[in-house]
Simulated scan of single mutants.
Amino acid sequence: MKTILKVEDLTKYFVVNRSLLSSGEVVKAVDGVSFSLMEGETLSLVGESGCGKSTTGRLALRLIEPTRGSVRYRGQDIAQLPPEKMRKLRGEMQIIFQDPWSSLNPRMTVKEIIGEGLRRQKELSRAQRKRLVLDMMETVGLRPEHYDRHPHEFSGGQRQRLGVARALIMRPKLVVADEPLSALDVSVQAQVVNLLARLKQELGLSYLFISHDLAIVEHISDRIAVMYLGKLMELASKRQLFERPRHPYTQALFSAAPTTEVGREKNRIILSGDVPSPLNPPPGCRFHTRCPQAQEDCRQLEPEFKLLAPGHWVACHHPLNG
């Protein structure tokens, strides 16, 4: 398989609390993240709230500019592209937003929301645009009579289908799905997950899937990357990570996921303390303040993100045997 997306040393710092008397403080939202996404693959980013998952997704699409690092889409460093070339590339790189309520313009109709990209990117007649919009509505499970309706006339699941249609109308190759199910009921989540999986096969999509729901991640992913406080802790195939997590944080995170299997008990790992502030991350390994396995080198030296086994990367001085 070919690489469709490659990020190296991706970093984003935000300056906050700036004033006339102060230059402000620096929030290290994403700090030196590197990974690749293959064509036709689903790579999931997981971790606690505030770990930098969504910021990473937006950096991957250049919706925000990185502080440093590179993002290569099909070999092109998109951070170096001029605005005109970047606009032409936008059709191939789309995002599905987390909130189906606030991400849709309430004043626009379905035909306007889905067809907006077509008006901006392609020279099509009104009849051609309408046909493409109706075809995409059918693809995501929306009916023709929805064509002239507004977002407030739909349920949450229908709104998210509308968001999916808006992202896919340009026939992208790369889709960042940023917590696309968190605002939906469980029954609707299953429908949208199955829709995303089906469209991946039909349209040949590659997903960067951002979520905190490990049950959904296990269902939809090919590989999984675990983030903590702006850093990647572990990256491996779905099977490797669920069967043998090597980082203490991954093990604790997965132990907290609920199970529906009758009679199956989990050895729940309770982490002490709170997540440190990204304004002042701890030295050494960022997880050492909560890690039950932490040793002196963990407190002083930042661990290298290294390959432990084929396809299995870990940033830990003392990885677990599993």
Rank of each mutant, 00 (worst) to 15 (best):
K173Q: 15
R68S: 15
Q189S: 03
P106K: 07
M137F: 09
S272Q: 15
S70Y: 02
L199Y: 10
M233H: 00
M233D: 00
I270P: 00
P283F: 10
L181R: 05
L132D: 11
Y207F: 15
A215H: 03
I4D: 08
A236P: 03
C316T: 13
A183C: 13
M108Y: 12
D185F: 06
G273T: 10
H146I: 00
V71E: 08
S155E: 06
V133G: 03
N105H: 07
K12A: 06
S272Y: 14
Y228A: 01
K88C: 04
K111Q: 12
I169C: 06
F254V: 09
T260K: 08
G163V: 00
G115Q: 09
V175S: 09
P151L: 14
K12L: 13
Y147C: 01
D213S: 11
Q121I: 07
Q293A: 09
F97R: 12
V188C: 02
F254D: 00
L61V: 06
I169V: 15
L61H: 04
F254G: 01
S103P: 12
T56W: 11
R119C: 11
G311W: 03
E179R: 02
M108I: 02
A215I: 04
A197H: 13
K231G: 02
V133E: 04
S182Y: 09
F287V: 02
E123Y: 02
P83K: 10
V226M: 05
T56G: 09
G115F: 08
Q121E: 04
M86S: 10
S22C: 10
N280M: 07
C51L: 03
G47M: 08
M227Q: 05
S277L: 11
H152K: 12
A294M: 01
R143T: 15
V186E: 05
E48C: 04
S182C: 11
V314E: 04
Q160K: 00
K238N: 13
S102L: 12
I114P: 01
L208N: 05
K200T: 06
V30N: 10
V176S: 14
G115E: 11
P319N: 11
G50E: 13
I269N: 12
L168W: 06
V217P: 09
I220G: 09
Q94M: 09
H288R: 00
A183E: 01
D99P: 06
R166F: 05
I224A: 11
L241A: 10
P276D: 05
R171H: 13
C298P: 11
L235K: 11
A215K: 12
A215T: 14
K130I: 00
L20E: 15
A252T: 05
L235P: 08
L134T: 10
G322R: 03
A256H: 09
R68A: 10
Q94P: 08
K12N: 06
M86Q: 12
F14A: 01
D148W: 13
F209W: 03
D31R: 12
V27M: 14
R223G: 02
L184A: 07
M38K: 15
P292N: 07
